[in-house]
Design a binder for these strands. Structure first.
Lengths: 142, 142
DNA sequence: ATTACTGATACCAATTTAGTATCAGTTCAT
DNA sequence: ATGAACTGATACTAAATTGGTATCAGTAAT
């Protein structure tokens, strides 16, 4: 049961990388090299982040991307939702509004409680916090 | 982001179904029909539950399956683990013991916290509790 | 013997995941 | 005004996973 897929994983890394940089445009190529993310794959991911407003872009030479929000306002939950959709049970249980099989409903109820918890936790983990943690770690090692 | 796949879903349903039955052996066919689970698929799932001790079986005519533990001792977490493996981050982060990329480690730390929470919640949802809930619902409906 | 079962395992199609490639358009520097 | 360095959009692909099917062998009750 993999919680995060590569897209989410790479997206978070890219966002952290952008958040740690001084202002200015950063090229996909630079991020790709720094974070060891396959270039073309990263490009598609960035485009998706742009479409969702987490990142802004500037075309042409000297262009690139930068964060579209402040790091503290980007929750990991938002990133997960973009690339993996909302946390949900097994499909069939959401299709029918009335579960024909009551056993599902009971389990579903429980899982929705957990879902909310998880979503809440993930939205409190922001890129800003991750960056702060990172900096704290680096300061200790430095 | 689907939390439970069909195998886990069907396994839980089958376990609930078994737990609600009076003692005795129940055939895969009977469960399959009652719960509308594809027969061959269910058979494979039951075999896996048997291998893991959640279910016992008896071969031959008049045989079938029954719970291998009392319902209160079967947590959904256990079922999830059998069919979907332990909750984990994205693979790469677990491969290397030392993350070459520190950003991952920070995120990983947070997610491991959430993982534990989720696992804890899921292990407290037992087949026994689900059955009790189900019975309560049915009693209310008369 | 025959019927009703499980054990083991191989197979399959559809979907998803991770990654690649291409072409068009924009901006900057010279 | 040309070339290099960029993004936008989108099509393609191989491999893995998921959900489901099929088969054959063995066991037990009647």
């Amino acid at each position: 049961m993999k919680v995060l897929n590569k897209e989410t994983d790479y997206a978070v890394r890219a966002l952290i990388s952008l958040g740690m940089k001084a202002d200015g445009w950063v090229s996909a190529k630079a991020i790709s090299e720094e974070q060891a993310i396959p270039y073309q794959f990263l490009r598609r991911i960035l485009q998706e982040l742009i479409r969702n407003g987490l990142v802004e872009s500037k075309e042409g030479a000297g262009g690139g991307v930068r964060l579209g929000k402040i790091p503290a306002e980007i929750g990991v939950a938002e990133v997960i939702e973009i690339f993996q959709g909302k946390v949900q049970l097994s499909e069939c249980m959401f299709r029918k509004q009335l579960c024909s099989n009551r056993a599902n409903c009971v389990l579903r109820h429980e899982i929705m409680r957990i879902e909310k918890m998880v979503n809440n936790e993930f939205s409190q983990i922001t890129i800003g916090k991750l960056i702060d943690d990172l900096k704290a770690v680096e300061a200790m090692k430095g």
